[in-house]
Amino acid sequence: MADEALAFILERTRDDEHKAALALNQARLEHQSYLQQLQQIEQYRLDYCKQLSVRGQEGLTASEYGHLQKFLNQLDETLVKQKAAGQQFEQQIEQCSEHWNEVRKKRRSIEWLLDKKQTERQQQLDRQEQKLMDEFATLQFARRMTSAR
């Protein structure tokens, strides 16, 4: 594969890695937002329970108590749904992380291949230079020997 093609593939892979890193970061931000939202709902439920307790001590009708309890049940259902959604956020983070790692491995492999090709080229140039130096030294020696006669 030509070096230009590998360089192009490397650039594309770097772009893909950058996009994967952005997606992973976005998934983490969404998960953090989700956790804050969940914490707010839990805090709201706790505050609501405290209010229910205070109002209960002041005296509630059965109808009022039923309405308050119904709302508390709705909050509990919302929390259950939110916690289920949390698993989806965690799965999304895991998938994004795996994708980012795969793309990163690919980029590193391409960089390794380009480095290897560059090292091989340099070694070949070094061998050619050494061969020329050896030939030059041999010619000089032969000239000295010829002129010494």
Score class of each variant (00 low, 15 high):
residue 21 A to H: 06
residue 70 K to S: 10
residue 11 E to R: 00
residue 125 L to G: 02
residue 131 K to W: 13
residue 60 L to T: 08
residue 132 L to G: 08
residue 115 D to W: 06
residue 4 E to M: 06
residue 47 D to I: 05
residue 11 E to T: 00
residue 79 L to G: 03
residue 135 E to H: 12
residue 37 Q to L: 12
residue 42 E to C: 08
residue 5 A to P: 03
residue 64 E to N: 05
residue 2 A to K: 10
residue 64 E to M: 09
residue 31 H to N: 10
residue 16 D to T: 05
residue 21 A to S: 10
residue 145 M to I: 13
residue 112 W to C: 00
residue 124 Q to P: 01
residue 109 S to A: 04
residue 109 S to I: 00
residue 136 F to Y: 14
residue 43 Q to N: 13
residue 64 E to D: 08
residue 126 D to W: 02
residue 145 M to E: 15
residue 22 L to Q: 10
residue 20 A to L: 11
residue 59 G to Q: 08
residue 24 L to A: 02
residue 109 S to L: 04
residue 89 F to Q: 11
residue 124 Q to E: 05
residue 96 C to V: 05
residue 41 I to F: 09
residue 100 W to Q: 15
residue 114 L to N: 01
residue 94 E to T: 14
residue 46 L to Y: 06
residue 75 L to S: 05
residue 12 R to I: 01
residue 147 S to C: 07
residue 62 A to K: 09
residue 6 L to D: 02
residue 77 E to W: 11
residue 7 A to K: 14
residue 83 K to W: 00
residue 34 Y to E: 06
residue 136 F to A: 15
residue 94 E to L: 14
residue 2 A to E: 11
residue 14 R to H: 03
residue 32 Q to L: 12
residue 120 E to V: 02
residue 3 D to H: 01
residue 68 L to N: 05
residue 114 L to R: 00
residue 136 F to I: 14
residue 148 A to H: 11
residue 77 E to L: 13
residue 93 I to L: 11
residue 5 A to V: 12
residue 17 E to F: 02
residue 99 H to V: 08
residue 96 C to K: 10
residue 79 L to R: 03
residue 19 K to T: 08
residue 80 V to G: 00
residue 71 F to D: 01
residue 105 K to C: 03
residue 115 D to E: 11
residue 105 K to T: 06
residue 77 E to H: 13
residue 13 T to M: 05
residue 93 I to P: 02
residue 107 R to F: 05
residue 89 F to G: 06
residue 71 F to Q: 08
residue 15 D to Y: 08
residue 82 Q to E: 03
residue 143 R to H: 14
residue 110 I to Q: 03
residue 4 E to Y: 00
residue 146 T to S: 13
residue 64 E to R: 11
residue 38 L to Y: 11
residue 7 A to F: 12
residue 149 R to M: 13
residue 60 L to N: 07
residue 27 A to K: 01
residue 141 F to W: 15
residue 22 L to T: 07
residue 102 E to R: 12
residue 84 A to I: 02
residue 21 A to C: 06
residue 141 F to P: 05
residue 81 K to T: 06
residue 52 L to R: 11
residue 139 L to R: 15
residue 18 H to W: 03
residue 102 E to C: 07
residue 54 V to M: 08
residue 127 R to K: 14
residue 48 Y to G: 05
residue 54 V to I: 12
residue 71 F to G: 01
residue 30 E to C: 03
residue 100 W to T: 08
residue 130 Q to T: 10
residue 122 Q to M: 04
residue 81 K to W: 00
residue 81 K to M: 04
residue 33 S to Q: 14
residue 53 S to I: 06
residue 104 R to P: 03
residue 66 G to K: 07
residue 13 T to R: 07
residue 15 D to E: 13
residue 120 E to K: 13
residue 11 E to H: 00
residue 128 Q to T: 07
residue 102 E to F: 10
residue 130 Q to M: 12
residue 120 E to T: 07
residue 48 Y to V: 05
residue 16 D to R: 12
residue 134 D to Q: 15
residue 76 D to Y: 04
residue 94 E to N: 14
residue 73 N to Y: 09
residue 136 F to N: 14
residue 28 R to E: 15
residue 28 R to Q: 14
residue 71 F to S: 03
residue 138 T to Q: 15
residue 21 A to P: 03
residue 38 L to A: 09
residue 109 S to E: 04
residue 64 E to L: 09
